[in-house]
Design a protein around this nucleic acid. Structure first.
Lengths: 358, 358
DNA sequence: TTGCCTTCCGAAATCGGTTTCGGTTAGCGT
DNA sequence: ACGCTAACCGAAACCGATTTCGGAAGGCAA
């Protein structure tokens, strides 16, 4: 406590050298004799010397820090993958001893102002933006600020910056194909507000999937709601109360799919037998739903790691447009998908269970 | 892009003043005339000037940053509350314009070394430690470093530092009481490795609950496993394979409880009717389990916020021991608890469902 | 007019590093 | 003995802010 942590000056005094010599010794300058370098390093970690990062970064001119912008909606159903993402990011940054800052926009200041302050104050060398809107002002801001960034997801027009995304459109085509193959012809869609690009993509996939299978599109079968379980329940309720309810439902989120299951149960409808449900995300929790939720799983184990590597590459000078990575989601069949049943016969529940790919 | 962000010198030149005057004007020193102050501020935000934080912090001598230490185990079943916690922390820090760093120990360096480097390099003014071990070397390290910190949870001996925790022992007494009141006399316990203090506390609560209800303690009814759903499944399997299996099971984690439900289902045992199960955490997801999981819910909506406020207070000079806050968990009855059934009669499923407190 | 006290601002030190530039010393060849 | 080149280290500028100290200008009383 009493001993202020040793700094360069103290270390230099201890060694009978000047700060400049010590600094260069520690940084392996070739014009310092190997003997001195060794001596200095030994003394350094004997005294527990750690260079002050604020001073160092001020001097070398880079903050050696990147920032992850937390998604806004953090409620009781917080996104579990935030932790995974941060872990991956941290891993990439650790290799360089860079720091990871997380920031949520100060409510009193606003998103854009927060970001602008962050980069102009020289605190960060790069930024990770997640869950962008169709036309997200944050990417334009970052571009005009000339600050490296990478987006987790995409915007509507995504040709001139770096992003890492999972192909939601393709995933929904796959889901609809799967359901069509099982005989379903009335397939409902439960979506999120279309200001989010991911919501639009998945809707596009749904539509494309329908036409690809020669099914016609009924506007009544498309329900938009907040992407929470309650939102899913409400939307599913509307769908099932139609005169001609769907025999299958695809949901843009596992959370909404869970809500959908809830709505079905409260109507004594058995998911996977009477009505099929497919979610999206591949949340581990889906395994424990009733019945276990079939879903389009994102391969997001390494998303954070990739985002980190991409961002660092851009900071190093690579062209952002070189990094536009589209991953594919894959169908994880659990038990909420099944063949269409013509009547409400008490058919056999579909129980095929495969484990998701780790 | 081309324009390097304006710094004090540039701003001063623009105004025809010196940097010292401009700096003091921006910081509302009284020895600068009000007129000049206004003029300077106007010019500052017209030019979009933001003080370089590295320089500023070096000068004022505090990093204005606190760090959250990520828990290690971040797998497919990542902790959803990490995001919530970070949100709360960020909120507290935003009020002062402080930064939030997240760090996971560099695998190649080790936990303690990472921490030591972090504080000695002057990057952080305080630290949040989560999920401590019984005898966690990190708290001793922080104490010897003289760096403010707060623990989310407690260690075995927790009298000389600041912490915020939920009373796991009390919670398990409550859970056992509840089950005993329902007539259960053989109650199993599925726990986590006892190196974690939370695991020990909850075991203590279980034991105390038993004796409080005059039940005797059978070592065979205590199973320890990793706190994942698979761990829960394995442990529950062992319990149910006993000659005299329990009629109720308490689990230290909702995740383990979900695994337990799995084990019961695979044995054609109906949770809540044949065997009661109570989890711990109050995860939102539990609502969608089959059947919905009864659990001891932590009031963790504001944990992050409180941790942040506590840490800031300590950094401001308050005595750490003033902050030792114990919250209570409360029973959220969903559908996996029910009265004991003497035989394997097909009794009525317990369906009381109350919603958790928001 | 002189002296003194405010009011306002500039010069310079400081935080703790990095990096450029220049100066000693030693070694070597001739 | 002389000159030249490496090898090694010190002095000082710099990064961009904050803060102490002191000085100039103006106002007021005597």
């Amino acid at each position: 406590m009493g001993n202020k942590s040793v700094n360069l000056k103290a270390l230099a005094a201890h060694l009978g050298l000047t700060v400049s010599t010590v600094s260069r010794a520690l940084n392996d300058y070739p014009d310092i004799s190997l003997a001195t370098r060794k001596r200095v390093k030994a003394a350094a970690d004997q005294l527990g010397y750690r260079p002050n990062q604020n001073a160092r970064r001020l001097s070398i001119g880079t903050p050696e820090t990147v920032c992850y912008l937390m998604p806004r909606q953090i409620g009781p159903n917080a996104q579990p993958f935030v932790a995974q993402l941060l872990a991956g990011l941290g891993e990439a940054l650790n290799e360089r001893n860079w720091d990871l800052l997380v920031s949520q926009a100060d409510a009193s200041v606003g998103d854009l102002a927060s970001i602008e302050r962050l980069v102009k104050s020289g605190r960060i060398a790069g930024l990770v933006i997640s869950r962008p809107l169709k036309n997200d002002p944050r990417v334009k801001l970052m571009q005009s600020l000339g600050c490296p960034f990478v987006v987790h997801g995409r915007t509507e027009k995504s040709d001139d910056y770096a992003w890492y995304d999972v192909d939601g459109e393709d995933a929904f085509v796959t889901a609809v194909n799967h359901l069509a193959r099982l005989g379903h012809r009335r397939i409902g869609f439960i979506g999120a507000p279309l200001q989010y690009q991911f919501a639009q993509e998945r809707l596009d996939g749904y539509v494309r999937g329908l036409s690809h299978n020669g099914l016609d599109q009924d506007p009544a079968l498309i329900q938009i709601a907040e992407f929470t379980d309650e939102g899913g329940t409400a939307a599913a309720g509307l769908l099932m109360d139609l005169d001609e309810p769907p025999t299958a439902i695809v949901c843009v989120t596992d959370m909404m799919a869970l809500g959908t299951l809830e709505a079905l149960h409260s109507r004594q409808i058995m998911p996977g037998r009477d009505v099929s449900v497919i979610g999206y995300d591949g949340l581990h929790f889906g395994k424990h739903a009733h019945p276990p939720l079939t879903t389009m799983a994102q391969p997001q184990a390494h998303a954070g790691r990739r985002l980190g590597d991409i961002l660092l590459s851009i900071i190093d000078g690579a062209a952002p447009t070189k990094f536009q990575e589209l991953q594919r989601a894959n169908l994880v069949q659990r038990s909420t998908d099944g063949p269409v049943t013509t009547s409400t016969s008490t058919g056999q529940t579909h129980v095929s269970e495969r484990e998701e790919s780790r």
